[in-house]
Simulated assay, not measured.
Amino acid sequence: MASGGSSIYKGSDLIRDYNCSKCEEDDLNTEAQHFCPQCEHYLCDKCVGVHGVYFKKHTVYGRREIQMWSGFSLDKCDQHGDKLNVHCDDHKELCCSVCVALNHRY
């Protein structure tokens, strides 16, 4: 079982509070340790370093400021920005209508 900031493929049964938005784009399941409200992205320790290089003026909150994370990006799709309004029973996740059409059809 993976622990800490390690990445495992998305097919894992491991459930995390917040997944790194950037790692998810590469089908990795990495726990987020940081949140950027300007980008509305959750970031792991690795990705927050890259983010800091490109977005120096963004304020990033760590786990100690997790109360600042709430209310952001919880009801919007990270990929499409649409509202999460469909639950996929097969993948056990909330999806936007675009994700359903592209990734959750038989």
Rank of each mutant, 00 (worst) to 15 (best):
C88I: 08
L74F: 05
E65P: 06
Y61V: 02
K57R: 10
I66R: 07
L102F: 11
R64K: 15
G71H: 04
L94M: 13
H87D: 12
H91L: 04
D75F: 09
Q67W: 00
D75K: 09
K83S: 07
M68N: 01
T59L: 03
V86R: 14
C95G: 03
H80M: 07
C96I: 06
M68G: 00
A101D: 15
V86Y: 15
K76L: 13
K92S: 04
K76R: 12
D75L: 05
K57S: 12
K83F: 09
D89R: 12
M68V: 00
Q79E: 09
L84C: 02
C88V: 10
K57E: 12
E65Y: 05
S70C: 08
L84G: 04
D75Y: 07
R63F: 10
C96E: 05
K57M: 09
W69M: 00
Q67I: 00
C99M: 07
I66C: 09
Q79W: 12
L102H: 09
E65S: 06
L74P: 01
S97M: 11
H80Y: 10
K76N: 07
H91W: 08
D90T: 08
F72G: 04
K92Q: 06
D78W: 12
H80A: 06
M68R: 01
D90Q: 07
V60G: 01
C88E: 11
K76P: 00
V86E: 15
L102A: 12
V60D: 01
C99S: 12
Y61L: 03
N103S: 13
V98F: 09
L84E: 02
N85D: 15
F72D: 03
H80I: 05
D90I: 07
S70N: 04
S97Q: 11
N103L: 14
L84A: 03
D82K: 14
G71Y: 08
Q67K: 02
C96V: 04
Q79P: 04
K92T: 05
R63K: 13
I66V: 12
K92V: 02
N103Y: 14
W69T: 00
C96R: 03
T59A: 04
T59K: 09
H87Q: 15
C95F: 02
S73Q: 09
C88K: 05
Q67C: 00
L74D: 07
N85K: 14
G71P: 06
M68A: 02
D78G: 12
G62W: 05
E93A: 06
L74E: 11
H87L: 15
L94W: 13
H91I: 01
C88A: 06
R63E: 13
V100P: 04
D75V: 03
